[in-house]
């Protein structure tokens, strides 16, 4: 079912080949391959414990991993997390990963660590997407509501000018309306040309956004298909669309 990136003709934005990760003796992610094209929004679906977060951590090298990584065709296998960020691979972690004792402003400024000369311009564009953050500028990040925290996490990631934005469960713990709002913003970002790799429990919502889906189970990608193809896979459709 998997389609090798090399057969697609275009050079993918990100390609992982046989990437795997272990925690001690336990192999949480078996050798697996995936790719994201320029400007594509791809979602990863799978049950709890399937290895979605491990895959995201392996791709950003937060967890030591084996296998090869390519960014726009360039081998970036040996690069550490902060060097991947310099290439534009930015991840919003599960739980948001904010700096809770820093203000909203400081979180955003830190987001522009690699582009400090453009901090003001970046901040203006973040406020266009999330005007509520402008009202909370001097508030501690840890004191924001869940939805505002997620807005800040995404806003901070945008300050880093991502080429590929990876998000791990951005709607976790949010009210449905807020989750819908956040995921709608991702669609807008994708329209602007940012590649997005999304891990999301709210599968029906994610499938409305994504162009392509990877299904992961037991630490391995077991299916890759276009979003509209999922309806023809009755077992997947039953599991993820209802």
């Amino acid at each position: 079912m998997s389609v090798p990136a090399s057969d697609k003709g275009n050079v993918p934005l990100l390609e992982a080949r046989d990437i795997s990760a272990s925690y001690g003796q336990v192999q949480a992610l078996k050798p697996t391959s995936l790719h994201i094209a320029e400007g594509e929004l791809v979602t990863i679906l799978g049950p709890n414990g399937a290895g979605k977060t491990t895959l995201m951590r392996a791709l950003t090298r937060l967890t030591a991993s084996k296998g090869n990584l390519f960014f726009r065709g360039e081998d970036i296998t040996g690069l550490s997390t902060h060097r991947l960020a310099r290439r534009g691979i930015i991840m919003v972690q599960e739980g948001r990963g904010l700096f809770p004792q820093m203000s909203v402003r400081e979180n955003l400024v830190i987001g522009a660590f690699l582009h400090s000369a453009e901090t003001d311009a970046q901040m203006t564009s973040v406020f266009e997407l999330f005007p509520r953050l402008k009202e909370r500028l001097d508030q501690l990040a840890g004191s924001l509501s869940g939805g505002e925290q997620q807005m800040l996490a995404i806003g901070r990631a945008l300050m880093a000018k991502p080429q590929l934005l990876m998000l791990d469960e951005p709607s976790l713990g949010l009210a449905p309306r807020v989750a819908f709002e956040i995921l709608g913003t991702l669609r807008e970002l994708n329209r602007r040309g940012i590649g997005i790799l999304l891990v999301e429990q709210k599968a029906p919502l994610a499938l409305k956004l994504a162009q392509r889906v990877y299904v992961i189970a037991l630490g391995k990608i077991v299916a890759e298909l276009k979003t509209d193809e999922i309806k023809s896979h009755h077992d997947l459709a039953r599991y993820y669309l209802h």
Binding site: A85, I90, Q93, G97, M102, E106, I110
Partner: peptide, 24 residues
């Protein structure tokens, strides 16, 4: 300062700091 803020960021969440390009 950029470096001072980065140090504080490392103290609060090292992984998040790395993900934003801060060389921990």
């Amino acid at each position: 300062t950029r470096t001072g803020r980065a140090l504080r960021a490392c103290s609060q969440n090292r992984e998040a700091a790395q993900l934003l390009g801060i060389p921990v």
